[in-house]
Structures are given as C-alpha cells and as structure tokens.
C-alpha cells in the first residue's frame, strides 16, 4: 500500500468515523498527567519518561483494537508499510497529525517520525530547573503507545525520542526500530 493511499484512508476515517473532542481538553489533560508525574517522582525525569512509556504501552494495547475496528485494514506486508500506516492513518485518526516518515536504515528496520505539529505539547514550556530540558521527553507516552500497539500485531519494536522542539531542538523526532516479529503463541501442552 502506498503512502498516498494510507493518507487517503486516514483522512477518510478521520472525517467519517471519529468522535472529536476539544483539543485543549486533550492538551491540558495530558499536560496535567505529566506535571503530576514530575511532582510524584520528585522531578526524576528518567522515571517520568519510563512511567509515560508504560502508560502509553497500556493505551497502545487497547488502541490498536480500536484502530483495526475503525480502519478495517489488514496485516501490513512489510515494515515500511507499517510505518506509513502508523504515520498517515494511526496518528491521523487519533491526533489529527500526520508525521513524516524518513531516515530509513538500509535494512528497512528503522525509521524516524518527524512531527511538525504535536497537539500534546501545545502551550507547554518545560520547567526551567536546568534538567527538564535535557532529561524529560514530554511526549514520551507516544513511544509507549507504538510499542504496545505494534506488539499486539506481532511486532516487537523499540521507540524513543531523539529531539523535541520543547527542548529547543529544531524538530520533534521519534526513532522507531523493529526488533523482531513475534511468533504465534502455542497453547500450553496438556499434561
């Protein structure tokens, strides 16, 4: 499936099958969660990143079912197709953004998502404690979402942010690597 086709599918589902909510509500809700985590973990940002990833993982495991139910798409033929599906359909229907897929490695197992727009981070200014700018990945929940969602469709991946405009970087970039395809599980042998 081509990138254009994926974009069209994403656009179509976004228009016809998605209940919309106020963007500020989402932004404020997510922001509050991150701020609360920072407080609960006493500004241990590594731990906050980890918790966000974990929360995302749990969301992703559910979200994939909703994604499949709404989109009706089947299994992707390869990882490149998966990348387009994530960027042009997944992100489109859940966040109304379509990050750019780029920086593929030659083995087609790693790519980057470049976010021109990140609704989770609207209005956000990181705490100026001299550490948050270097340690906190504000939107880290998204990495977990991808990890959880792809695990459910038999792909073990690793995802992390490499830059974020909130930190003063020029772009917001997430790196996604395919670790392996997960084999079907067999039922436990009867005794």
């Amino acid at each position: 499936m081509s990138t254009q086709k994926a974009s069209r599918i994403g656009e179509e589902i976004w228009k016809t099958r998605i209940d919309k909510v106020n963007a500020e509500l989402v932004t404020l809700t997510y922001g509050t969660i991150v701020a609360q985590l920072c407080q609960d973990y006493d500004s241990n940002y590594q731990e906050v990143n980890k918790q966000l990833d974990k929360m995302g993982y749990n969301i992703g495991m559910r979200l994939i079912e909703d994604f499949l139910a709404k989109s009706g798409v089947g299994r992707c033929a390869n990882f490149r197709e998966t990348a387009d599906m994530i960027a042009k359909v997944g992100f489109k229907i859940f966040l109304n953004v379509a990050p750019t897929v780029t920086n593929w490695t030659s083995d087609n197992n790693q790519f980057s998502l470049i976010f021109d727009d990140n609704p989770l981070a609207d209005f956000v200014e990181l705490p100026d404690d001299g550490r948050a700018q270097d340690e906190l990945w504000f939107s880290n929940i998204l990495c977990g979402v991808l990890r959880g969602a792809l695990e459910m469709v038999q792909m073990q991946i690793e995802a992390h942010f490499v830059s974020d405009v909130l930190r003063g970087d020029d772009t917001t970039e997430m790196r996604v690597s395919l670790v392996r395809y997960i084999e079907d599980e067999m039922p436990p042998e009867d005794d």
Binding site: E24, T27, L28, Y30, G31, T32, V34, A35, C38, D122, F123, V124, E125, L126, P127
Partner: peptide, 9 residues
Amino acid sequence: VKTAMSPFY
C-alpha cells in the same frame, strides 16, 4: 493565557 495553560505553570 498560553503561558497559564502550560502544565508546569
């Protein structure tokens, strides 16, 4: 308003 909307403010 934008500044006040920042979750860390």
